[in-house]
Amino acid sequence: MNRANFVSGAIGVAVGGGALAGASEFPPDVVMNVGPAFFPSMLAGMLVLASAILMVGAALEPAAAAEARAPLRWSFADGRVRAAVTVAAVAGFTLVLGPLGFIPTSVLFLAGMMAMLGMRRPLPLLAVSVGVTAAIWLIFEKLLVLSLPAGILDSLLY
């Protein structure tokens, strides 16, 4: 059995089933017979069907073949941590973007991420963080007149 495919299929069935249940509560369109629920229900049904096919295929697949074709296993223990930290860092970035402002947030984020990815010398680290931030800020604020949150630098920038 190909476990990854089986689980993916199960997720597909669950999503499709959930959508079917959700769509059943949409108001009907008495005139046209084709209301808000028509497309979502049809698609959800198709998703359940396709996912089921994948699950059956995965269940029937001989274990050896599945092993050979299975995608790369987690082999870098620290890699997995780094991926999780990256996701968390982006979420943190978004969280403080408003109150702290784009420039400080971006410099901190860049410096932290670069340090994690192996840039250790402080001077280039800082210079690149500030440089990249400044370039992005200039393009958005000045060239395109799209304002980014100023945050704590509010009084300084205006």
Partner: peptide, 22 residues
């Protein structure tokens, strides 16, 4: 080490800029 974090910052700003919506 420089490229990946920069792409992330650009991604965040790009996603944010259109509607200014976190």
């Amino acid at each position: 080490a420089i490229l990946m974090p920069s792409i992330l910052v650009l991604s965040v700003v790009g996603a944010y800029a259109m509607r200014r919506d976190v």
